[in-house]
């Protein structure tokens, strides 16, 4: 039982929740705009690859983040054009993009680095971990919160920012209105298309950060299909939260914590496959609870 509240477990849970959190916050915007977005997966994977490229070529994780975000935005733009302007089915476009991103990043990996499968390269620079001056020395809390990767703190800041954008900015209000009643937005003289685009691009931006964390959050490596369903898990967090930032954040943290716990359990002899399976099973469980709760509340 100790392991449940072990500061190391909590710390690693926070860390593991970061990519899910970023992607889920992005997915929240598309959800609010009533766009069912399973392309989160491809946006993350695209960004993961290009942030490795950026990190390698410019020897800076920040360059990696920038390039990753740009790549993810481009992919988001493709999704937006096809689904918003051409009215293509969001699920078909999502699946095709996910398969396409998987293929394209694998090929580019081969073309640019001459390797297949995965890339371990000393040139890949991850984001550093940082200690927080005062918090560091607080017992327990310091062990959990301090000494995390820079991106972890960036994620926390982003979560707060997303809440503000969603509830206190013009854009946030308009995106939420759009998802619930496009006609209300249109008769207010606003372009639904524009805000649908904005929501998808915001999602691209945040999935860019999510993708960057995968290789540059400490691992310093890239492997084929590195996102491995994290985008789908993020989508589950989005559906659980149903457009409410606080709930989306909570769900992401729980997913990260569960993954950390499972990894810890591995140390107690739990078979590898069952450990790897747990986030997916947990996601289903969570979605079940979330939907039930919503039905009960009306």
């Amino acid at each position: 039982m100790e392991v449940l509240f072990d500061p190391a477990t909590l710390a690693s849970g926070i860390k593991l929740s970061v990519p899910i959190l970023f992607a889920a916050l992005g997915g929240m915007f598309t959800h609010q705009a009533n766009v069912f977005n399973i392309a989160l997966e491809s946006l993350m994977l695209t960004s993961a690859f290009f942030s490795v490229v950026g990190s390698c070529y410019f020897s800076s994780p920040w360059a990696g983040l920038m390039l990753g975000i740009v790549a993810s935005l481009v992919a988001a733009l493709v999704f937006a054009v096809l689904t918003v302007d051409f009215g293509a089915d969001v699920i078909v476009v999502g699946i095709a993009m996910n398969l396409g991103a998987w293929g394209a990043t694998s090929i580019l990996l081969e073309l640019m680095f001459g390797v297949r499968g995965f890339l371990l390269d000393p040139r890949i620079v991850s984001f550093p971990s940082v200690e927080i001056p005062v918090v560091k020395s607080v017992p327990y809390l310091g062990q959990v919160v301090s000494g995390q990767n820079v991106l972890v703190y960036l994620a926390a800041a982003t979560a707060v920012a997303v809440h503000f954008v969603s509830y206190h900015s013009k854009m946030g209000l308009r995106i939420r209105a759009l998802g619930q009643n496009p006609a209300a937005v249109e008769t207010a003289g606003l372009s639904p298309r524009r805000y649908r685009y904005l929501a998808i691009l915001l999602c691209g931006l945040l999935c860019g950060a999510a993708g960057t964390f995968l290789p540059l959050g400490g691992l310093s490596m890239f492997s084929e299909n590195m996102s491995a369903g994290k985008g789908y898990i993020a989508l589950a967090a989005v559906l659980f939260g149903n457009g409410v930032p606080g709930l989306v954040i909570a769900a992401s943290l729980v997913f990260g914590y569960a993954e950390a716990l499972a990894v810890k359990m591995q140390g107690f002899g739990l078979p590898n496959q069952l450990v790897l399976m747990s986030p997916y099973v947990l996601t289903m469980l969570f979605l079940f609870i979330g939907t039930r709760r919503r039905v009960a509340a009306g």
Partner: peptide
């Protein structure tokens, strides 16, 4: 029965199937 989104669940079950059969 419960109105829970089938897309996410079926996607999750893909991963479970890979790992469960392997296990």
């Amino acid at each position: 029965r419960y109105g829970i989104n089938e897309v996410v669940n079926t996607l999750m079950l893909n991963y479970v199937a890979y790992l469960l059969t392997e296990y």
